[in-house]
Design a protein around this nucleic acid. Structure first.
Lengths: 331, 331
DNA sequence: AGAGCACGAGCAATCGTTTTCTCGGAAGCT
DNA sequence: AGCTTCCGAGAAAACGATTGCTCGTGCTCT
């Protein structure tokens, strides 16, 4: 491997001069600089980032720790983060936790050990994984869910309000018994969406009942089972609010098995706008979350912190948008 | 920040002993070791990975460079890679190139500078971005597409054969004028799928014609336009082979606009099995690629190389599976 | 002309580890 | 008892860059 001293030797200068010439920092005699650059390219010199970062005590890598790489909501966030980071010269490490707090903890550990410049995290909800980051003053931004008990920049979506609006919408369409399929207890978005659902029922004076609510992992399989279970009751719901697009897949599978048509037989609204939502027959009514913007915003906040902003942590709450399509229109 | 010498000082030993105690390498007096461990945990010591990697001249980070984070095919690969890597103690950096060779080059550069242990790449097709990796003997595995002009481990899917089978299937279902919507020229998978489509036509003695083929970016918008264009001809195709699931979304949009029902009015087969394919009415016939396995396999190959295997590069070609559903069944 | 200054280059320290080498002491052997 | 051997711990040298500091040169100003 060719090092900077090889380059320096070949150009007949000291490593210091070579370094300065290659980084264009301090002024270097143009003649020497040219020699250095030539030598570097002849040798195919690539600086060793490890050594550089060790010396500079900083890296240009951000960690993005999310719970599911296969969820389009998170990949859209990732794209937003990446676009901003890339433009600022940072790389992004994408880490997948599967909602397992052990993995989350492990990745936080890695972020610390690799001295990453900052961390964007969608917290699993379990306390204590980020203490170490706080201790080291590594900037953190929480996305999608707040970080319990920590003071950090946070970018959220008002999913409680959105869930309420979706529920009210279903009621206004004439659905009289609205059910809710949400994520695991303790996951903040799942709880928020459930709370919003209840807000909605209250505001339209429908009774809420535990029998109308089911929880499952944020995946399709669990949602399918939950739906079958929910609809097997004596007085089943005639509409469903679904907390996530992966779950929506399971719900729609279950409805197909039961030969219930969305819209006509049963109203359906799901969180997350997926490209395929429009292709269904009838098209799926969704709560569209501004995932890409969450990503860009989070990255900007993080970069500000990294470059030394010492203002108080901010919490930004973006709003989601109800996109009404056929699956919630009684016909 | 607490360093190993802080720990050593607190435990009244040298840094050498502290290091050995913490890594459990050479034998250390249990008493001293205990003191060191205690001191480390009291101080909340976290080793500096940069320094460690610099000294050890190796890192435990893999780069996965793909063209689209939002494409489920690639995220499934990512998950496969991550699962294997994680189990072996490696982290994965996910990098997104958007099919831009400039970004690809940049990320390769980053991988080198950060001294990453290996690279898994789905090459954009432009030559020359990986020379530097070869020079440095950084292990590379190509996935989904071969690396032109390089001798590396490669994991592919036989999409040409799969495209042929899909085309034959459409013909057998009685579709007489089969069109093809594929990706940009020069992108290997796009070209292969087109070639397979032509193979299929030939084997069923249908004529292939340039007017039945359209190319576009691997995204829904382009595919939608291409479809509208393709179907606006005097003698339009009555079936379509679509090269990718993002494109399938665009195609299906176009068909909906034209009020053509898949299956009945026009046969449709698309590459990539997506969870929503079954939810459509009729469900979408797809060519399911073993994306997760591509990922696990690629990661295993890479890890083997990293740990020093010097066997000849292998090329593994996995096969895809035609999953026949309603959209290609004439009724 | 002499003093001071600006500038540019190099020496050497530094970042935080790991690891080689050295050395002292204890144990085993003859 | 004296010699070799072994073992474990510490001193110090890496790893490859960046950067503070020093120093020599040449210029300007008085």
């Amino acid at each position: 491997m060719t090092t900077i001293s090889d380059v320096a030797a070949r150009a007949n200068v000291s490593t210091a001069t070579a370094s300065r010439a290659l980084n264009g920092k301090s002024s270097v005699d143009p003649v020497l600089a040219a020699r250095v650059v030539a030598a570097a390219s002849e040798l195919g010199y690539r600086p060793n980032g490890l050594a550089r970062n060790l010396r500079r005590r900083e890296t240009a890598v951000l960690a993005l720790i999310i719970s599911d790489v296969e969820n389009p909501f998170f990949t859209a966030i990732a794209r937003g983060v990446e676009d901003v980071a890339q433009a600022a010269g940072y790389s992004v490490v994408l880490c997948n936790t599967d909602e397992e707090s052990a993995k989350e903890r492990r990745y936080v550990e890695v972020a610390i050990e690799e001295q990453m410049a900052g961390v964007i995290l969608s917290p699993s909800g379990v306390l204590g994984s980020v203490e170490a980051l706080r201790d080291r003053r590594t900037p953190i931004v929480a996305v999608d869910r707040p970080l319990p008990g920590e003071q950090t920049d946070t970018v959220l979506v008002d999913s409680r309000l959105a869930a309420k609006q979706a529920t009210v919408h279903l009621a206004e369409q004439g659905y009289g018994v609205i059910g809710c399929i949400t994520g695991p207890s303790g996951v903040r978005t799942a709880d928020d969406r459930l709370a919003g659902y209840r807000d909605g029922l209250r505001s339209v004076k429908q009774r809420s009942a535990a029998r109308l609510v089911r929880r499952a992992e944020y995946r399709s399989a669990g949602a399918r089972e939950a739906t079958l279970d929910l609809l097997s009751q004596a007085e089943p719901p005639d509409a469903l609010l679904v907390a996530n697009s992966a779950m929506a897949v399971g719900v729609l599978q279950a409805l197909a098995e039961l030969k219930l048509r969305p819209g006509r037989d049963i109203g359906v609204v799901a969180f997350d706008d997926a490209p395929w939502a429009e292709l269904l027959d009838p098209p799926l009514t969704v709560v569209a979350q501004p995932a890409y913007e969450i990503g860009t915003l989070a990255a900007q906040l993080l970069l500000n912190r990294i470059t030394g902003s010492h203002t108080d942590p901010t919490t930004t709450t973006l709003s989601a948008q109800l996109v009404v399509r056929g699956s919630s229109r009684r016909r």
